[in-house]
């Protein structure tokens, strides 16, 4: 069996990739996808530590994270569609109307 710290390392690398994606991309939909990568990296941490402790509590937390991610994707994509109707764009630079 591979030691749990390897899984945690993989999760850390995936989280950093997702974080960089949020920063460097300008397309809102791709930014949402990078957030999904970050959520899944954290899910991997929960499942790895649940296995380490021999308990299913971490897996139940992952179940809730999935439900919240589904809700977030539905609402976020609806906001993007509404925004696209107004501006004909999904670029975050056009989404700055609230910025001072």
């Amino acid at each position: 069996m591979v030691p749990i710290s390897w899984y945690l390392t993989l999760s850390a690398v995936l989280f950093a990739i997702g974080a960089v994606g949020v920063v460097i991309r300008r397309n809102v939909i791709v930014i949402l996808m990078a957030i999904e990568i970050m959520l899944n990296a954290v899910n991997l941490t929960f499942i790895a530590l649940a296995r380490q402790l021999g308990s299913v509590d971490g897996q139940v937390v992952v179940f809730f994270v999935m439900a919240v991610a589904a809700a977030e994707a539905a609402v976020g994509l609806a906001i993007i569609v509404a925004f696209f109707r107004n501006r004909e764009s999904v670029n975050v630079d056009d989404l700055a109307s609230l910025r001072w």
Partner: peptide
């Protein structure tokens, strides 16, 4: 973009160091 990539690499490095120093103990049999 290059700076963001470097910041991300630094973040990954710090997280890996955190994991390496974590007192994980022995894995329990499932």
């Amino acid at each position: 973009r290059g700076l963001a990539g470097m910041a991300g690499a630094l973040m990954a490095l710090q997280l890996v160091r955190l994991v390496a120093g974590a007192p994980l103990g022995r894995m329990v049999d499932a």
